[in-house]
């Protein structure tokens, strides 16, 4: 009897923490929504979404999120274009090609990479990568989209590599045997059988990688140049959603329109990352089927 009671207590506790997490997510969403609505009462949602200028302290202010979304989008796409092929190729190398000892070394190295604080990468960006980009492309400043693209790609790599690698290792051995048995070479087996079989896991890795990039704040604050203008190219200074919130929150008056506008930016960011994570989860589930 006592045992049963004990079990019930534990079960309830576990269930409660599960529900608590769901409740937190919903609460955060409601909290963001509530403060965002305070903005939309005085500033139309349509203008917020369509206006091409972010001028929060002009008189009257303009809260157009387009340049910020464009900035986020530009650096995210740039980072993904670099880190997806590199990450998947590395995962393939670790899962299928590297000899045993190298596998272990590479895997722990990637864990180390994942644990580098982003502020350190920001430093590297300011001191070394920024000037390098500036000289290479003959720019007036190295603090621009491209510099952050490199750093963000680097930051997303560990996520993409380790989740893709899991997916590749999880491909049933019997598929490979079937391919080899039909006379396929190592490369043909990887390309035509292993990669497609792992594709949903790899897609999930890419989604989580994108989520990581789009949510990153410190690095983009430090190296994008932070200009809240519509970027014409990736070689220009720009600003992301995250950097806007982090950079301006300290300067606003609590309860002002500007203050609420930042919450609205946060709401948009929350929705984007939520959708990304949700999609990743769908892909992971499909892969496990």
């Amino acid at each position: 009897m006592r045992n049963k009671f004990g079990e019930r207590v534990i079960e309830t506790a576990i269930r409660f923490s599960g529900f608590a997490i769901i409740a937190f997510v919903i609460l955060i969403f409601l909290f963001l929504l509530k403060d965002s609505l305070s903005l939309f009462r005085v500033y139309s949602f349509k203008r917020f979404i369509l206006e091409q200028k972010w001028l929060p302290i002009s008189e009257p202010p303009t809260f157009g999120i387009v340049p910020l979304i464009t900035g986020s989008l530009l650096v995210t796409v740039g980072a993904i274009v670099i880190c997806v092929p590199v990450g998947v190729a590395t995962a393939l190398y670790i899962a299928e090609i590297a000899p045993g000892y190298l596998k272990t070394i590479l895997k722990s190295l990637i864990e180390v990479l994942a644990s580098i604080p982003s502020v350190v990468l920001g430093f590297i960006g300011i001191i070394w990568l920024g000037p390098f980009v500036k000289n290479t492309f003959h720019l007036s400043t190295g603090m621009c989209g491209l510099t952050s693209v490199f750093l963000l790609a680097f930051m997303a790599l560990p996520t993409i590599i380790s989740i893709s690698e899991d997916a590749l290792v999880g491909v049933p051995r019997m598929y490979k045997e079937a391919a080899y048995g039909l006379g396929a070479t190592h490369w043909q087996t990887l390309w035509r059988i292993v990669l497609p079989a792992a594709s949903s896991g790899i897609m999930a890795a890419v989604m989580l990688g994108i989520g990581r990039v789009i949510g990153e704040t410190m690095v983009v604050m430090m190296v994008t140049g932070n200009a809240p203008i519509m970027p014409k190219s990736i070689l220009q200074p720009l600003r992301t959603l995250t950097a806007t919130i982090a950079g301006e929150m300290g300067e606003t008056v609590s309860g002002s329109d500007h203050y609420y506008a930042l919450f609205a930016v946060g709401l948009i960011l929350f929705i984007i990352t939520f959708v990304l994570n949700f999609t990743a989860e769908v892909f992971l589930r499909k892969g496990r089927r």
Binding site: M174, Y175, E177, A178, A179, Y180, G181, L182, G183, A184, T185, R192, I193, P196, A197
Partner: peptide, 27 residues
Amino acid sequence: VALRKNVGMVFQRPNVFDQSILNNLKF
């Protein structure tokens, strides 16, 4: 490669690929 083409193998567990019937054959 040529050897395995000439000496085919059928395994214990049916190991069709997780792809269409057609693609399994075309592989």
